[in-house]
């Protein structure tokens, strides 16, 4: 069994224990997931206090519904699915602001070589700003793929959409980021040895 499978098996065992009222197991799951949930939520809404509240709402729901977890999806898919559902409900119910394009940080000028005189760290920060300017549905797929390490099948489950939609969203997200990627100096000549 590889480490990812071991991790999943461990989480499934925790969830079963939580279903039996084991608070120690809930604490273990919390320590593993709370930051991830927070990160997922805060990138959908811009209200830090509300995001913290939503993390505990999600964990509370896990505490109450763990007994009904049947393991048909992985724990991370289940948990992020709850987080997304809760966040969308909060956005709809309380009219919370999502991160709008107009409010996202300015992206680099497409006509200028953004890599000039910038460190890798600064370039990555610029990349994050560019991703923040994507639409919700494109940003979500990018985040779930690269921050939460979800497979496209898991993302389809979390977003409750077909797998092809997930792939298409990623394709379009990448296409929209292409000018920035190009400007950040990721030119073919500089990528020697990439496999």
């Amino acid at each position: 069994m590889d480490s990812a499978n071991e991790r999943t098996a461990e989480e499934v065992a925790w969830i079963h224990r939580i279903g039996q009222g084991d608070k120690a197991a809930l604490q273990l799951l919390y320590q593993r997931y709370a930051s991830r949930i927070f990160r997922f939520v805060i990138r959908m809404i811009k209200d830090e206090a509300k995001a913290e509240e939503l993390v505990n709402d999600v964990m509370m729901e896990i505490w109450k519904s763990a007994a009904s977890f049947e393991g048909r999806s992985s724990p991370s898919t289940w948990i992020l699915g709850i987080a997304r559902f809760r966040t969308l409900n909060a956005v709809r119910g309380k009219k919370l602001d999502t991160v709008e394009l107009s409010q996202a940080p300015e992206a680099v000028d497409e006509g200028e070589d953004a890599s000039t005189g910038k460190s890798q760290e600064q370039l990555r920060a610029l990349m994050r700003q560019s991703i923040a300017r994507l639409s919700d549905e494109h940003r979500e797929v990018v985040e779930l793929t690269f921050f939460h390490d979800c497979s496209y099948k898991e993302i389809a489950e979390i977003l409750q959409c077909p797998e092809n939609t997930v792939k298409t969203r990623m394709y379009h997200a990448k296409a929209k980021l292409k000018p920035w990627l190009k400007n950040m100096g990721l030119a073919e000549a500089e990528l020697g040895g990439v496999t």
Binding site: R39, L123, R124, A125, M127, R128, I131, V142, E143, T145, F146, F147, K174, L177, K178, L181, M184, L186, E188, L191, V194, T195
Partner: peptide, 19 residues
């Protein structure tokens, strides 16, 4: 390979917590 490098750069950027 260039496409892959771009995805890897996206991955590194997203995985990192901004200041």
């Amino acid at each position: 390979q260039l496409q892959l490098a771009e995805y890897e750069f996206m991955q590194q950027s997203v995985a990192e917590l901004g200041d």
